[in-house]
Computed example of a mutant assay.
Amino acid sequence: MTVPSFTVPSLFLAVPLTAYLTFVSPWLGRRQYDRLARRRADDPRALVRAYRIWIGEEWAWIAVTALILALSPDAGLRDLGFIRPDDFGKVAVMTAGLGGALLAGSLALRHASRSGRAVPGQEAVAALLPRTPAERWHAVAMAVTAGVCEEVVYRGLLIALGVGVLGLNPSVAAVLALAVFVAGHLYQGWRGMAGVALLGLWFTAMYLATDSLLLPIVAHVLIDVRGLVFVPAPPPEKVGHAA
């Protein structure tokens, strides 16, 4: 991993964005999810509106990230993981692992759903699960947005800032970025955050092994699509916030 160089003007954007992701976004996300859970049963457009707000917010992060790079001539897309992986052996192993994990997880989720048992982890995101075609399309858009934007910002940008600005070892910077990523899912409660931490660790390992965001983005999108779209939503009376 190269050591990117960020200019002082770019830091006037990077520092507030990092502070927002670390402190404001977790608190705001929790409030937004709680409000959605309260209104979901009585407002048929509540989920669609929430998805649109979150999609807009995450693409705003990308816009700020683009400005940070534009203000830093010595830092480029490559420093944020926008490269093709060179070690195709690692890519093949990770791709096979991703496919196996998705298949096994999907079979387990389908079996749990058909047998009437609670789907693992569903309670933490119950208010986000779509029931109508419009909600499903917005859920797909949300999954793609999260997979792209969160990997670029949490994995690409934050690790690059840790290495280039703070002088941290890439592994240490990755751990700190992972902590911010997990905090951003505060709305899921501690059990949900534990699952997010495991997934985030997997995405981080992919990134550090290949220096590319390609596999983490693909894995993130596929996992979110499976979790939001292909898992049956619980009955409305069971939708609520997971403590």
Score class of each variant (00 low, 15 high):
residue 98 L to Q: 13
residue 121 G to H: 08
residue 97 G to D: 11
residue 121 G to E: 04
residue 96 A to G: 15
residue 110 R to N: 05
residue 117 R to T: 13
residue 104 A to I: 06
residue 121 G to A: 11
residue 93 V to D: 01
residue 100 G to K: 02
residue 94 M to N: 10
residue 107 L to V: 13
residue 108 A to C: 02
residue 119 V to W: 03
residue 100 G to P: 00
residue 114 R to N: 09
residue 98 L to I: 12
residue 118 A to R: 11
residue 98 L to K: 11
residue 113 S to R: 04
residue 106 S to T: 15
residue 103 L to R: 03
residue 102 L to P: 06
residue 101 A to I: 13
residue 103 L to S: 07
residue 95 T to Y: 09
residue 98 L to C: 11
residue 97 G to V: 04
residue 103 L to A: 15
residue 107 L to S: 03
residue 93 V to H: 14
residue 106 S to A: 12
residue 113 S to P: 00
residue 113 S to K: 01
residue 94 M to V: 08
residue 108 A to V: 08
residue 120 P to C: 09
residue 117 R to H: 12
residue 100 G to C: 03
residue 93 V to Y: 03
residue 97 G to C: 06
residue 96 A to F: 08
residue 92 A to K: 15
residue 116 G to Q: 01
residue 94 M to L: 15
residue 97 G to T: 07
residue 99 G to L: 04
residue 99 G to A: 07
residue 98 L to H: 11
residue 107 L to K: 03
residue 107 L to A: 07
residue 119 V to H: 02
residue 120 P to G: 11
residue 114 R to H: 04
residue 112 A to Q: 10
residue 112 A to E: 13
residue 108 A to S: 10
residue 118 A to S: 12
residue 114 R to G: 04
residue 99 G to K: 03
residue 96 A to W: 03
residue 107 L to E: 00
residue 121 G to M: 09
residue 100 G to E: 00
residue 99 G to N: 12
residue 116 G to C: 03
residue 114 R to M: 01
residue 113 S to L: 00
residue 108 A to T: 07
residue 107 L to W: 11
residue 117 R to M: 09
residue 114 R to A: 05
residue 111 H to I: 03
residue 100 G to N: 02
residue 105 G to F: 03
residue 99 G to Y: 01
residue 96 A to R: 09
residue 113 S to Q: 10
residue 108 A to N: 05
residue 107 L to R: 09
residue 105 G to M: 06
residue 100 G to S: 03
residue 113 S to G: 07
residue 118 A to F: 00
residue 117 R to Y: 03
residue 115 S to E: 08
residue 94 M to F: 15
residue 102 L to S: 06
residue 94 M to H: 10
residue 121 G to T: 15
residue 96 A to K: 05
residue 104 A to M: 08
residue 109 L to P: 00
residue 99 G to R: 00
residue 118 A to G: 04
residue 92 A to I: 10
residue 100 G to V: 01
residue 96 A to Y: 07
residue 103 L to T: 10
residue 113 S to E: 08
residue 115 S to W: 01
residue 109 L to V: 12
